[in-house]
């Protein structure tokens, strides 16, 4: 009897492993191994071209902290991540609240907002460049109306807002669709009851809508925040990190020092900082938001 039980446990263990291993092995052999390799490179002075590799310990990590470019890229990345996430949330919650009413146009609007999800960031970048270049379409219109021209992508104070605008434009549709689904899951009776109790629209929003949206808020926020932290394509196509490094996010910086300047090891050290940072933030965020969710629901 005990032998059979043991065999059963063994069988279950074996079968669990059988289900687990294929997917995890492929992931581990490519992605995890790459991260480990990047860490390994970060301890050397490899340039990616020559065969010589000298061990330098954590010198590349110290070097990053001393470099204004690294600190600047942190600032830029957080600018995009914090303001972008906040804007996307506010806009998509408001849009979904507007859309969550009976009306035959709802489907049309939802499709319109979702369209930007369908095309590549490269394509989006090129379309918006034709809009926002100094001699682009927007300035042509401003000129026709006799208004002063604006250098949306060439002015360091403005370029990051332009990039932010384009990213919000792209991501909001995603948030809207998810919040809309969250809203549609709220039982209508709750609102009816609140109306009978004499609650005004704002009270109804804070006491019913917002708490019920909490799970969507968590996933949208974490998903979008980490997405912003990784942002590369938009910046690459729109500004390449300029002007004066004002849009140089960490991902752009890593590519620049690794690929343009042939400092693969140094770039790897920056990537390691990046990985730890994003990992810590998203875990803290998930933890915090999930707890808030529980508080709100109870």
């Amino acid at each position: 009897m005990i032998g059979r039980l043991k065999r059963n446990i063994n069988t279950i263990r074996f079968q669990t492993a059988l289900l687990f291993v294929p997917g995890f092995a492929i992931y581990a052999c490519i992605i995890l191994l790459s991260i480990v390799l990047a860490f390994y490179y970060s301890l050397f002075d490899w340039d990616g071209v020559r065969n010589s590799m000298n061990f330098v310990g954590f010198a590349n990590y110290v070097r990053a902290l001393r470099q204004p470019a690294f600190l600047n890229s942190l600032k830029v990345t957080f600018f995009f991540a914090v303001i972008g996430t906040a804007l996307v949330n506010v806009i998509s919650i408001s849009l979904s609240a507007q859309l969550n009413r009976p009306g035959n146009l709802t489907n049309f609007y939802r499709s319109a907002f979702f369209f930007p999800q369908l095309i590549s960031m490269v394509a989006i970048g090129f379309i918006f460049k034709s809009l926002f270049s100094y001699i682009g379409i927007v300035n042509a219109i401003l000129e026709r109306w006799g208004l002063p021209l604006v250098d949306f992508l060439g002015d360091p104070a403005l370029a990051k807002w332009t990039v932010l605008f384009v990213s919000v434009w792209q991501i909001t549709g995603f948030g809207t669709v998810i919040y809309l689904a969250g809203l549609q899951a709220i039982p209508q009776e709750l609102y009816d009851a609140a109306k009978i109790d004499g609650a005004n629209p704002w009270q109804r929003f804070t006491s019913i809508t917002f708490p019920w949206l909490a799970p969507s808020l968590t996933s949208v926020t974490v998903f979008i925040f980490t997405g912003y932290m990784r942002m590369f394509d938009f910046i690459f196509v729109l500004t390449g990190g300029g002007p004066v490094n004002s849009t140089e996010s960490i991902a752009i910086l890593v590519i620049r020092i690794g690929f343009n300047q042939f400092k693969i090891s140094y770039a790897s050290a920056v990537s390691m900082y990046f990985l730890v940072l994003v990992g810590a933030i998203s875990m803290a965020m998930t933890y915090f938001l999930r707890r808030r969710e529980e508080v709100l629901i109870n």
Binding site: L37, A38, T226, A251, V278, S282
Partner: peptide, 10 residues
Amino acid sequence: MIPIQVIMIP
């Protein structure tokens, strides 16, 4: 959490 460009070389 990582952009694929960052680990492209490995």
